[in-house]
């Protein structure tokens, strides 16, 4: 869980890195904690602005309803893709056992 005071301490860095599935050494976490703190302090200037009632911009374009017809197109070569796989078996991609 993220700490309440919203600063990006080492615990938070580790929690976030875990969400992002990136292993960090203790040293890396410390450096990141400092750097991210500096960046977030800078980003905090956004809090000066009154953004109430302001719509969020998700897309710059005013285009909408982009659709395609339900028409089949040939798939790409299965072999080509599987050849790149770090590990494969028959026609499957293979990953290590899943332990949650």
């Amino acid at each position: 869980m993220i700490s309440k005071d919203k600063s990006i301490d080492i615990k938070t860095v580790n929690y976030i890195a875990d969400l992002a599935r990136i292993a960090l050494s203790q040293e890396e976490a410390e450096i990141l904690s400092h750097q991210l703190k500096e960046i977030l302090d800078f980003i905090d200037r956004l809090k000066e602005i009154n953004i109430e009632d302001m719509p969020a911009t998700t897309h710059i374009l005013e285009v909408k309803n982009v659709l395609r017809e339900d028409i089949l197109r040939p798939s790409i070569s299965s072999a080509k893709v599987l050849d790149m796989a770090p590990l494969k078996k028959d026609n499957f991609f293979v990953v290590p056992k899943i332990i949650e």
Binding site: I2, K6, A20, M54, A56
Partner: peptide
């Protein structure tokens, strides 16, 4: 990646990502 994951994480989304999108409008 870590900064971006943080900006979207539960409890931070409104304060960071959503706010940034609103400032983007401005």
């Amino acid at each position: 990646i870590i900064l971006g994951t943080f900006a979207l994480a539960h409890g931070y989304y409104e304060a960071y990502y959503l706010r940034a999108q609103k400032v983007r409008t401005l």
